[in-house]
Computed example of a mutant assay.
Amino acid sequence: MTATHRHAGHQPTLVRQQGRHLVVDIHAHMNVAAAEARIRAEMPQLPRGLPFSCPASDAVNARMFAEIGAQLNGVTRRIEDMDRLGIDVQAISPNPGQYYYFAAPELGRELAMTINDAIAQAAASAPVRLVGIGTVPLQDTQMAVSEMRRAVNDCGLRGIEIGTNVGGRDLADPALRPFFAAAEELGVLLFLHPLGFTQAERMSDHYLNNLIGNPLESTLALSHLIFGGVLDSHPGLKICVAHGGGYLPAYHGRMDHAFRARADCRQHIAREPSSYLQQVWFDSLVFDRSQLDYLVARYGADHVCMGSDYPFDMAEPDPVGFLSQLPEAARAQVLGLNAARLLNLMVGVEV
């Protein structure tokens, strides 16, 4: 069987299906040590990835990164874990701490190229099990477009991971429009993933800048994409939002009311804001089955993709089992068919 969507720059990739349904993890990360070493050499005093934290959370994170180093930085343990979890294919995207949007543009481009080459190499080492999602230097839109084209056309990557803001600039910033236009033209997936909330002064304790901050950042970014007119101007964009899309998919009524009641909430859009949510996809990383059921019922089983957040401690420990209560047809879509279409995969059944 096949599930394809042809990108401009490359042919579908053949991947392996072992069981009854194709299982694709659209939300799994890889760290590229060479890029990390390069940025530390250039900027010894790096900005903190999560600047609003506390000593207790910092200590837990230090232990976690020490424990998951082999999984986060390599392939061998990753494949073993995929076999254990029943996952056929992982779409590996950069560790969100490696966006490096704060770097000077030329350095940002060099780092993005290093990361994309490494992810492409990792995918090539297990070509029926791993596919790559890259990064681009969004601090310079022209460079970002150029690197996206290289990553897709030359490196064979299946998508681009983007942050929820670019050095504090929201994604609806007019300077970023050529990037979204190019992504729409290429037909390439954009995987929207946050890295804490930017104004989280009250979220330092209890890891709240991740627990609350990450979905809040996605909520804000998605709201800017809607109200700023990006999704209206580029209806062909393929965007998958991590962590179930944040809070917006479950609380869209308020913004629809504002659209009807206030002129300042319909400056760049012609219809109710919630209608634009039908244009995006959400991963299944919500941890609560009733919330998963809501996403599937409200937005359709064809707009939810299985995601685990491997290999972090905030990952879903049983991403396949988490979907077990879905009806058979919906489960097949969420487990892998949707991701196969978004990532341009051709599926072969093992005998």
Results as ranks from 00 to 15, higher is better:
residue 2 T to S: 09
residue 6 R to M: 09
residue 11 Q to K: 12
residue 11 Q to I: 05
residue 13 T to H: 05
residue 15 V to S: 12
residue 18 Q to P: 04
residue 24 V to M: 02
residue 27 H to D: 08
residue 28 A to T: 10
residue 52 F to H: 14
residue 62 A to Y: 13
residue 67 E to C: 03
residue 73 N to W: 10
residue 81 D to R: 14
residue 85 L to D: 14
residue 92 I to K: 03
residue 94 P to F: 02
residue 97 G to Y: 10
residue 100 Y to E: 01
residue 102 F to R: 12
residue 107 L to Y: 05
residue 112 A to S: 15
residue 117 D to C: 00
residue 122 A to T: 03
residue 136 V to M: 04
residue 144 A to V: 09
residue 146 S to D: 15
residue 150 R to C: 07
residue 161 E to M: 15
residue 162 I to K: 05
residue 169 R to V: 02
residue 178 P to V: 05
residue 185 E to C: 10
residue 191 F to I: 02
residue 195 L to W: 06
residue 203 M to Q: 14
residue 204 S to Q: 14
residue 204 S to P: 07
residue 207 Y to F: 15
residue 214 N to S: 03
residue 231 L to A: 04
residue 236 G to E: 02
residue 247 Y to A: 10
residue 251 Y to V: 09
residue 253 G to F: 09
residue 254 R to Y: 08
residue 256 D to R: 08
residue 262 R to L: 15
residue 267 Q to V: 13
residue 268 H to S: 13
residue 278 Q to I: 01
residue 283 D to C: 06
residue 292 L to Y: 07
residue 294 Y to H: 14
residue 295 L to F: 11
residue 296 V to P: 07
residue 298 R to M: 03
residue 308 S to D: 04
residue 312 F to M: 07
residue 314 M to D: 06
residue 315 A to G: 06
residue 318 D to E: 14
residue 318 D to K: 13
residue 321 G to A: 10
residue 322 F to V: 09
residue 322 F to I: 07
residue 323 L to W: 01
residue 324 S to P: 02
residue 329 A to H: 14
residue 334 V to F: 00
residue 338 N to S: 02
residue 340 A to C: 11
residue 344 N to V: 05
residue 350 E to S: 08
residue 351 V to E: 10
